[in-house]
Design a protein around this nucleic acid. Structure first.
Length: 415
RNA sequence: GCGGGUGUCGUCAAGUGGUUAAGACCUCGGAUUGUGGUUCCGAUAUACAUGGGUUCGAAUCCCAUCAUCCGCCCCA
């Protein structure tokens, strides 16, 4: 036997036994997003490497160590690690700023990050998400969060925690970072190596370190005072208050998590995550926020925007497995010609039907029918002579004799 | 990149140094040439991740490699 080639590390086949769950969450996404005025957009799965370096941010782990990058004809290309940068690129390139605002887009598809796989994390995974361009008002933030919650509810997920925070604007955030670094400076030698790196690169991310020694430092009154201070400027404060007010109006339960900073550089003001307690340590099912400077940074008009992305594998792992659909009917007959004609007729009428191509014995065919279908359509000599078909309900063994034209009604109505 | 666990048929799984490596499920065939889902019988012609080593003898002990799972970092 030739050597077997296996799937690559961190990638998975989505098998026929699971595909119904995928169809379900994809169809629900299409319905929920389009009800809110969103149109689907499909962008390429690879882009210029520079798009992600500039868009996602070159201090982030995603860009630093997780990108699938390859060279082709002296171009550096990268498999998309997330889709916001690509959608923004398309928005700019296609002049969508001329469309009436807001421009509301949603997407689904594979993303790629070169990481060690573990529970809830793969190298190729799938996200469904949305981006809304052109609205600076907090109503957009609230809509994004409510859309995420509505979608999760629509696929049947209820016990989820919504966490929100505000990062302020570039001006007040710089101020905050400065204060944070100041108060932490005396403790710098005591911090874990990761935190020492974060101290230089992205002080905001110091805050959700899990190392006990670091946590203890962040709990010290002098430090905690800075962390929990409402550092944002009056405008940002007002914006965040409105977002919370709208969430209350919408009846969305949330908690404010001052430690929530997100790992991508482009966010400002509102950020949010939705988490599940049933996922192991990779417990975020949704992450998003506002990114008002990304469009400009990627060469477009100054355009405010908000968006989120959800991990589809994580969603599916929280859903009960869906039983795969049986066929409506299976033809049981030893007369090949009549079988072919009947199958053709039924398929054209949108009945899910199959038959035995090897012309096995009657009992074998019926056995197969009981495994694969809800009804057996028995087409034997008697039936052919009389121009009828015997329809056997395989769940309760009831059998009736009908005309071909009656089949559609019977097979579609009785579920 | 770092730490830990695990690799026996398509799937689940017994076996922890001694002749042909249990069993169950699935699949296929037969009992049963027009009535299935129950039952019975049989088959899947070289399944112990791979390569070394220890031993009279290894699925079992040791080493390495590979794969996979879980955790850290980070994230969906």
């Amino acid at each position: 036997m030739a050597k077997i080639i296996t799937v690559q590390k961190g990638t998975k086949d989505i098998l026929p036994t699971e595909i119904d769950s995928w169809h379900f969450i994809e169809e629900t996404a299409k319905r929920v997003f389009s009800n809110a005025g969103y149109k689907e957009i499909r962008t390429p799965i690879f882009e210029a490497t520079e798009l992600f370096a500039r868009g996602v941010g070159d201090t982030t782990d995603i860009v630093n160590k997780e990108m699938y990058t390859f060279e082709k004809s002296e171009r550096s290309l990268t498999l998309r690690p997330e889709n916001t940068a690509g959608v923004v690129r398309s928005y700019i390139e296609n002049g969508m700023h001329r469309l009436p605002a807001p421009v509301k887009l949603w997407y689904k598809g594979p993303m790629f990050r070169y990481e060690r796989p573990q529970a809830g994390r793969q190298r190729q995974f799938h996200q469904v998400g949305m981006e809304m361009f052109g609205i600076a008002q907090p109503t957009a933030d609230a809509e994004a969060i409510s859309l995420a919650v509505n979608y999760l509810n629509a696929i049947g997920l209820k016990d989820l925690d919504v966490e929100i925070n505000t990062l302020g604007c570039p001006t007040c955030r710089e101020e905050y970072k400065k204060k944070l670094k100041e108060v932490l400076k005396p403790y710098l030698p005591e911090l874990c190596p990761d935190c020492q790196k974060r101290y230089e690169k992205n002080p905001l991310r110091l805050l959700d370190c899990k190392v006990e020694e670091c946590k203890a430092i962040y709990e010290k009154p002098v430090v905690k005072e800075v962390i929990t201070s409402d550092f944002v400027c009056p405008e940002c404060h007002e914006h965040f208050e409105s977002v919370k007010k709208y969430l209350n109006v919408l009846g969305i339960k949330y908690s404010v998590n001052k430690l929530l900073v997100r790992g991508l550089d482009y966010y400002n003001r509102t950020v949010f995550e939705i988490k599940s307690n049933n996922l192991g340590s990779q417990n975020a099912v949704c992450g998003g926020g506002r990114y008002d400077s990304l469009v400009r940074n990627l060469g477009g008009e100054d355009t405010p925007a908000v968006g989120f992305a959800m991990g589809m594998e994580r969603l599916i792992s929280l859903l009960p497995a869906r039983e795969s659909q049986k066929l409506d009917a299976y033809v049981v007959s030893t007369n090949v010609e009549e079988t072919l004609k009947l199958v053709e007729y039924l398929r054209k009428n949108d009945i899910k039907v199959d038959f035995d191509m090897t012309n096995k014995k009657f009992t074998k065919q019926l056995e197969k029918a009981s495994k694969l279908a809800r009804f057996a359509l028995i087409l034997g000599e008697d039936e052919i002579n009389q121009g009828t078909i015997s329809v056997k309900n395989l769940a309760n063994s009831e059998q009736i004799s009908v005309q071909k034209e009656e089949l559609g009604g019977i097979l579609k109505n009785v579920k």
